[in-house]
């Protein structure tokens, strides 16, 4: 991902008075196209009744810059991304160094960990779960 361009877009949301609503990560399982899998990350911003999203696909090991310079409250989401998914977030304002959650499994939502669990339950390959193509960007305000 283009970190500078991304952070500039995030800063624009902050300048326009938007609130960081949620950062969400979804693991994409390893496939022929993505041998290590990937992460689909969306940053959602709210203003009034509006909700907008930025979305990036990153591969394991790729650095994702923290948005805490614009939204200090992002540190919880970013620590969560790192601990549960193994996303390499850099520059987190409050770096909890792996102490936010105390999960028995290290990075339980990493693509590899999910793949191993699905293999163990015989559910790997069940349907389109491992599709490598990105989903279209969500644009709807659900339930409207």
């Amino acid at each position: 991902m283009d970190g500078e361009r991304f952070l500039a877009r995030v800063a624009a949301y902050r300048a326009d008075g938007w609130r960081l609503s949620v950062i969400n990560t979804t693991a994409v399982l390893p496939s022929d196209e993505l041998p290590q899998g990937a992460f689909d990350i969306s940053w959602s911003f709210a203003l009034g009744t509006r909700l907008e999203h930025l979305r990036e696909r990153v591969v394991p090991g790729e650095e994702v810059p923290s948005v805490s310079p614009s939204f200090p409250s992002a540190f919880l989401y970013e620590n969560e991304m790192r601990e549960l998914f193994g996303v390499d977030v850099t520059g987190i304002a409050v770096d909890l160094r792996g102490q936010l959650y105390r999960t028995a499994t290290r990075v339980p939502f990493s693509p590899g960990a999910i793949r191993r669990r699905l293999e163990a339950t015989g559910r790997l390959g069940d349907g389109a779960r491992h599709a490598a193509k990105p989903q279209p960007r969500p644009t709807t305000e659900a339930g409207a």
Binding site: V22, S44, A128, R129
Partner: peptide, 13 residues
């Protein structure tokens, strides 16, 4: 505010 994110892929799961 609670935000739910759901991603489905045409399977039961």
């Amino acid at each position: 505010e609670v935000v739910y994110y759901l991603k489905a892929n045409g399977t039961k799961y």
